[in-house]
Write a protein that binds this DNA or RNA. Sequence first.
DNA 1: TCAGTGATTAGG
DNA 2: CTAATCACTGAG
Length: 177
Amino acid sequence: MAEIIRLKREFFTRDVLEVAPDLLSKTLAIKAVDEEIRRYVISETEAYRGEEDKACHASKGRTGRTEIMYYEGGRLYVYFVYGMHWMLNIVTSGKDNPQAVLIRGLENFPGPGRVTKILGIDRSFYGEDLVTSGRIWIEDQGVKPVFKTGTRIGIDYAGEFWKTKPWRYYLDYPWTI
DNA sequence: TCAGTGATTAGG
DNA sequence: CTAATCACTGAG
């Protein structure tokens, strides 16, 4: 029986191309308003890698919104898009290397907008530290993910080179084939 | 296929 | 200040 371990700083300070697939099958734990802890399995992620990555928000440099991406890995980068949806991202790698993983889906709750809706994520989670926070963190249940890769969604503006990078990772369930 | 909805950003 | 854009979703 594997031990359940809360992910520490070292997990998040690696390159985003290692962290994004490693987050699959990990459990996102969050304290609801009633103080009850709810857990969800991460099923789909996407990697956004530095200022050179034209699909990454940090490609425009340091701004008020992207500031947190320049912190050491483990923080949350939360932003609002299309006037309706909050997006949940996890900052990775070291200081001044702006990378982040978009949480695109949880088991039974596919879609980045649905993820934040079910979790109750909003502006107040911007900058939250997954390593020290008392209301949100990630656990390793000891499950090895079997996953597939694909191109990232919704980044047509990024140009052919960045658009075609296989930086989307998703659990490959036998019953979805 | 397409409207909805508002924060963020670049530019004047 | 203005206007364009947007790492999306749900209804039809």
